[in-house]
């Protein structure tokens, strides 16, 4: 269960002033429409074969649309409890997050560490982050909502939504942000798992390509001396030690020279 921390000197009352009901209803309807549209975008997110960073950036952009009052948003994914992948919908968000992770203090770090939504209406005067608040306030950023991205018992990271005005996010904005954060976390974790699978496949393919050169060089040594694969490998290791070069480099040279000879023979023919 998330809690909402509201910090700052003055709170915007969530009850509308008398006579404002129609405006408020219109605004709520517009907010709901924005949220629906952003959720729909979220579900169509990966149509363009996005990589993980691009996909996260889109989630941040959709969050700006879904959460009323937002000027920019960023996502931070954690790896071993440390900020790993950080993306932003706008340059000013990148600046703010650079301050946050530079000094190791801020709303995103709190939201992820304590698994709860964090809100601040006046960052410059917020005692929660005495170093972070004044610095980002000088950058012209005054309000924030940070939402943890939860997956089961774990925390994937957090989403930061910033505004330049003071007191930009009311309880409704927080509620919409929390609604948005649930499917966002699912999309993020699916994308993260797929990106890891792609990375593994690429690494595996690269390892096999490197091994292919070594095995082909072993074949060359076997052809020349009639030795077994294991004996050829021993020969390659001795050559590597004698030449003080990596076995893979020695193997590649053996292969390149043999291929060059084969091509030269073809040219002569």
């Amino acid at each position: 269960m998330t809690e909402t921390t509201t910090s700052g000197a003055s709170e915007r009352p969530d009850a509308p002033p008398p006579g404002d009901e129609p405006d408020r209803a219109d605004r709520a309807a517009a907010d709901d429409a924005d949220l629906r549209e952003s959720l729909a975008d979220l579900s169509r997110l990966a149509t363009g074969r996005l990589d993980l960073r691009a996909m996260l950036t889109h989630v941040a952009e959709f969050a700006v649309r879904a959460i009323p009052g937002a000027d920019g948003a960023g996502l931070t994914l954690l790896e071993n409890d440390r900020a790993d992948t950080i993306v932003a919908s706008a340059d000013f968000v990148r600046e703010v997050d650079a301050v946050q992770y530079g000094i190791g203090e801020g709303p995103c770090i709190t939201a992820a560490a304590e698994r709860r939504t964090v809100r601040s209406a006046h960052l410059g005067r917020d005692p929660s982050w005495p170093r972070f608040g004044p610095r980002v306030s000088r950058l012209g950023v005054h309000s924030v909502v940070s939402l943890p991205l939860l997956a089961g018992d774990g925390v994937l990271g957090a989403m930061n939504v910033y505004a330049r005005t003071e007191d930009a996010f009311d309880a409704r904005a927080v509620e919409l942000g929390e609604l948005f954060a649930v499917p966002a976390a699912i999309s993020v974790q699916n994308a993260q798992a797929l990106a890891q699978a792609q990375r593994l496949a690429t690494q595996l393919q690269s390892a096999l390509t490197h091994r292919a050169a070594i095995d082909q060089a072993l074949g060359i040594l076997m052809s020349r001396s009639g030795c077994s694969p294991a004996e050829a490998f021993d020969k390659l290791r001795v050559m590597s030690q004698t030449q003080n070069r990596k076995a893979s480099a020695v193997a590649q040279q053996l292969l390149d020279e043999a291929v060059a000879r084969a091509r030269a023979r073809h040219s002569a023919d």
Binding site: L208, R211, A212, D215, Q216, A217, L218, G219, I220, L221, M222, S223, R224, P229, A232, L255, A258, V259, R261, A262, R263, R265, H266
Partner: peptide, 21 residues
């Protein structure tokens, strides 16, 4: 199997074939 295939390719390369051949 992949290692064996590449070693055989190496043997044929030493006999004058390009890797594709």
């Amino acid at each position: 199997d992949i290692a064996g295939l590449n070693q055989a390719i190496g043997i044929l390369v030493d006999h004058g074939h390009t890797p594709d051949e």
